[in-house]
Amino acid sequence: MNDPGKCLLKRVIRRIPANMLKTTLSHWGRVSDAQLQSVDFTTSKWALTEKLLNICEENELTVKHVTELEMIHVIDYPNLGMWYAFQLFDPDDAAPSVDMTQFKEQFKFHLSKLMRNVSVKIKKHTDEAIWIRVAWGDGFSRPNHMKPTYVVHHLQSSYVFVTRLTSKLKPLLSQALVLSTRYQGIKDANLSGRNLAALRNLLMRQYQQVFSTKFSTPLAEKSENISNPQIEREQAESATKRHQMACEAFGDGVLPQLQSAVYKLETKFRDHNNKTMTDREEPFKCIVKFTSTNLLESLRHCASSGIASTPVTPLLSSVPVKGRNYFVITDNVPGSSSQTNRPQK
């Protein structure tokens, strides 16, 4: 095995958690059972790597084989980097009939036409997702396997998730995707996060949603010795109402894990206490970034606890409704109070 292969193997072994190593290796299928038996998985990672390097030499494995191992690991642990969502638009008539084999051939064909030295590996995962690993080179250098781009796409859906893509290579990947899926174009979906499954669930509406209803759930009696039943009831009622509205805006139960939402505000400053600024023509430019370990749950708690007023402003509820977490907000028409969300580009 050559040096890039060794480097890659070392890195992959280092990244796979020790308790998962044996399972992942047997899943890989490039190492025989007898060889696996001979490896002592209780030794240090360093010793393990040496041993595995020897086995790979023995089996005459190449970089290509090691990239398979990396793919297995990335599919098992997808939440290690930042994922960006893209949306395909205007499908051709042929788009719904594109199948796996066709897509695979087309994608490889188009990408290699666009770029000479590029190494593509495509794998179908159990949940019908297509995982693509692209190692980029350029006209003169071989593909760099240490900095691959990963792409996840569900056939017949219009969403594509990408991680570790540089802006320079974005047009190439976009073009290859558009051609091989038979769509007219692809655009930034303005959604990003560390949790791939969360992005997918958010865009495909796979979380517990609550719909506005006239008859909200009956109120459960809470405490026995109520000092003033009237006040208690009134407070409980408004609390329930707030909770209901919070759930309507963001959903119920466990929500998809988003880490942040960014708003670029370019709106007029309006404050009845400040005439000078209100009279000013230019917009007040600022950027607001919300961060949390689970943004939607935080926002729901804001609304249900009363920190954020209910009904929830469309700006915040747009995150789950539109499946986006990047917004540019400008005034709709000069003088009117409504705002519109304009896409990034």
């Binding site: 600022c286 950027i287 607001v288 970034k289 919300f290 749950e297 935080s298 708690h301 804001c302 606890s305």
Partner: peptide
């Protein structure tokens, strides 16, 4: 709030 929310303005 739970989980804590941070706002950078």
């Amino acid at each position: 709030v739970e989980p804590p929310l941070q706002v950078a303005f």
